[in-house]
């Protein structure tokens, strides 16, 4: 029988939206249990129990699980995996870090960035920076380990009521890796990866100071703010705002690209967006080839005008 174990991602206080999105993928494969690793924080297990499609929640609470260290979590996950045919995690920096370590312990290959479920053991995934899509199948003699490309799935509803079971997988936990700190960007704005609307600036914005007009429009729309790799490399904004193959892959309902030419590596990060708007002074910019609405002109007059008229 197919049984899926989904590893929940959280920040110690709340589940990351990536968990609910991965849940949608897991449900398409089979009956799914959600594993929450934390130090206390029972509310995490309670919210995991509301995910539609979750059969059970396994809560592994111990001090070592306070922070998401792959070397500490992987042996525990591998232990729990004995009862499952599939182990899934979101394809975020969390899942990308921990799941290959689990797969190696299980002697199983991993399917990274699952975009769609073709059958219980067969999936589509992107390679070559999203320029090629392939179908990969996992042989029958091993556990299926996979990370879920979260931009490809809608979040599961939260009207479920799964049973919560405390578990303590018996595994030797190493002390060779120690968590020191997380330097998070403190922002009042919505989180880039879960925002319904995103406004992004590129090299065309010209400077860190000029990014204020991007922030202004974003705040008017209650949108998150992103940037192209060119804007990050030019030092206008920090790297955690980067959207694209080497940054975050997002799927908001509305995406507004300002002063972004549309390099393939950026496009890879936005092509699942609902509606794409491009504002650029170069009418030949590749971004216009995929935008739903394009406006050619000077961003320094268009963006403030747009902000004002949204009033």
């Amino acid at each position: 029988m197919t049984r899926v174990l989904l590893i929940a991602e959280h920040d110690g206080a709340e589940l990351n939206l990536s968990t609910a999105k991965s849940m949608s993928c897991a449900s398409q494969i089979g009956e799914t249990d959600v594993a929450v690793f934390s130090n206390g924080a029972d509310s995490l297990a309670t919210s995991a129990a509301t995910l539609a499609g979750a059969a059970r929640v396994l809560h592994a609470s111990r001090p070592e699980n306070a922070k998401p260290l792959a070397a500490v979590l992987a042996p525990q996950i591998a232990k729990l995996a004995a009862d499952y045919t599939h182990v899934l995690a979101p394809s975020t920096t969390f899942g990308k870090d921990v799941l290959p370590r689990v797969a190696a312990l299980l002697g199983a290959p991993q399917v990274s960035d699952i975009m769609s479920v073709e059958s219980e053991r067969s999936y589509k995934r992107p390679i070559y920076a999203g320029n090629v899509i392939v179908q990969v199948s996992v042989p029958d003699n091993c556990t299926v380990c996979g990370t879920v490309r979260i931009a490809s799935f809608k979040a599961a509803a939260t009207d479920g009521n799964a049973e919560i079971t405390a578990v303590s997988p018996d595994a030797d936990l190493p002390a060779h890796t120690r968590y020191i700190d997380l330097q998070a960007q403190v922002s009042e704005r919505p989180d880039l990866q879960s925002a319904m609307r995103v406004v992004s600036g590129g090299r065309g914005v010209g400077s860190a100071e000029n990014f204020e007009i991007i922030y202004g429009l974003a705040d008017k729309l209650s949108a998150a703010v992103g940037a192209s790799r060119a804007a990050v490399d030019a030092g206008y904004v920090p790297n955690d705002m980067q959207i694209g193959q080497t940054g975050k892959i997002i799927a908001p309902d509305l995406y507004i690209a300002v002063g972004i030419s549309g390099a393939i590596q950026h496009v890879t990060g936005i092509k699942d967006a609902g509606t794409i708007v491009a504002i650029n002074k170069d009418a030949e910019a590749p971004i216009f080839a995929l935008a739903d609405f394009g406006l050619v002109g000077d961003l320094f007059s268009i963006v403030p005008d747009l902000e004002k008229k949204l009033g």
């Binding site: 199983a108 794409i276 935008a291």
Partner: peptide, 17 residues
């Protein structure tokens, strides 16, 4: 154990608006 890979395809293209 190794993954079997098949059906290499271009990604779905967005239409220009």
């Amino acid at each position: 154990p190794a993954l079997e890979t098949k059906n290499y395809e271009p990604p779905p293209q967005r239409q220009a608006g």
